[in-house]
Amino acid sequence: MNIGILLKEGPYNHQASDTAFKFAEAAIKRGHRVDAVFLYNDGVTNVTKLMDPPQDDRNIAARWSELSQKHGVEILACIAASKRRGISDDVLVEGSAITGLGTLTDIAIRNDRLVTFGD
């Protein structure tokens, strides 16, 4: 099955990003293809490489980056939402990209499921 994920909240402030990640991992483990994680609203701040949490905590941006590189999951931040929040190509972690809402529409159309995580 092909699955798209829509993530609508930023890292750390809400559990949404953590649940989305755990869900993506489990879906891949069950043999599904996670096509893309589309970041919207404050969700776009999931992929800034400027994030620098304490050593003993998870680095959420790095985790998305790794998921992308290991499993070919596209990590896409909405351009309009990114611009509002100071997210640009300069700060993106490897494996992520900025794109338009048209891409989300394509993701919604081409996948069997679109699962949303937010708050």
Binding site: M1, K22, F23, E25, A26, A27, R30, H32, R113, V115
Partner: peptide, 13 residues
């Protein structure tokens, strides 16, 4: 989480 994915396989969300 595996069971969560299982439910998503069976249903729209």
């Amino acid at each position: 989480y595996d069971g969560f994915v299982g439910l998503v396989e069976e249903h729209q969300v």
